[in-house]
Design a protein around this nucleic acid. Structure first.
Lengths: 116, 116
DNA sequence: CTGGTTTTGAGAACTGATTATCATTACTAA
DNA sequence: TTAGTAATGATAATCAGTTCTCAAAACCAG
C-alpha cells in the first residue's frame, strides 16, 4: 500500500481503513481487504509488522532504516523517530544474547500538545 | 502475590498459574483467582501491568526501581534489566513531549542459550 | 458481449485473553 | 458447632482483533 509509505509512522488495520475511507463516503472498502493486503505485503517482504501496544499490530514499509517509535497517549497514533540510542549493550546481563531491540517513547505528539 | 516478588521478571496470568500449580497436582488453583488477585494488586498500587507483547499483559511489583526488560524469543519469558540508556532525548522530535519510555531487548536468555 | 478466473465486501466465525456467574468451600465471630 | 459472610474454582460469557466464507462485482482474453 502506498498509503503506508506516505504515513508518518506505522498504522494498524483499523487506522488504515479509516484513512482509505476518508473522503469517500460512497465507495466502502472492506476491513477484510485491508487484512488481506497487509498479510500479503508481509509475506512478500514489502511490509513489516510492529507491535507497540497490546492488541494493535501496526504495519510499516520494510525498506525503512533502523528506527524507533513514539506513541501518543492522547490520539494513540504512532510516529517514526530517527536514530537510535547508543548504550544498549550495557543493559544486557551476562550470558544473554541480544538479537534485536525496541525503544518506544510515550507522550503527547505535536498536534495534541497544540490542541490541549 | 509473593510469587511475583521473587520472579526474575514480570509474569503473565498464565505463567503465574503454571508457576503456582507446579508441584501441586491435587490442589487446583483457578485462573479466575489469578486474574482477581492481579487486578486487585494493581488497584491497590502494589502491582503494575507491563505490556511487552501483543496479547500478553504481565505484572510486576510496583516498588521496583526504573528498569527495562528482556524478552526471550525462545521461551517467551521476560527478564528484568538493570539501568537505563542515556540519550533518549535525542530521539524526540521538536514539538513532541515525552512522559515515559520503554526499552525492550529481544534475544536468547541464558537458559535457552545453554539448551540449544 | 461472453465464459471463466480473480478480487472484493459484508458478515459470520474464530481466537486468545479477560471477566462474570454461581454454586461450593473456607473463614469468622459468637 | 453454627449461621453468616467472603473467597474460590469451573465454566460460560464477553471482547477486540483477525480470519473465513461466499455470493456479487470486477477483470480479462477471445
Amino acid at each position: 500500500m502506498a498509503a503506508l509509505a506516505s504515513a508518518q509512522g506505522p498504522m494498524s488495520a483499523t487506522e488504515l481503513l479509516a484513512k482509505l475511507s476518508e473522503g469517500k463516503p460512497d465507495s466502502a472498502i472492506g476491513i477484510a481487504t485491508i487484512y488481506r493486503s497487509l498479510k500479503l505485503g508481509v509475506e512478500e517482504g514489502r511490509l513489516v509488522a510492529v507491535e507497540l501496544e497490546s492488541g494493535a499490530v501496526r504495519y510499516e514499509p520494510a525498506d525503512l532504516e533502523h528506527h524507533h517509535h513514539f506513541l501518543c497517549v492522547e490520539c494513540s497514533r504512532a510516529f517514526d523517530l530517527k536514530g537510535c540510542v547508543s548504550d544498549l549493550e550495557d543493559l544486557l546481563p551476562a550470558g544473554f544474547e541480544m538479537t534485536s531491540h525496541e525503544v518506544l517513547l510515550h507522550g503527547k505528539c505535536q498536534d495534541c500538545r497544540r490542541a490541549g
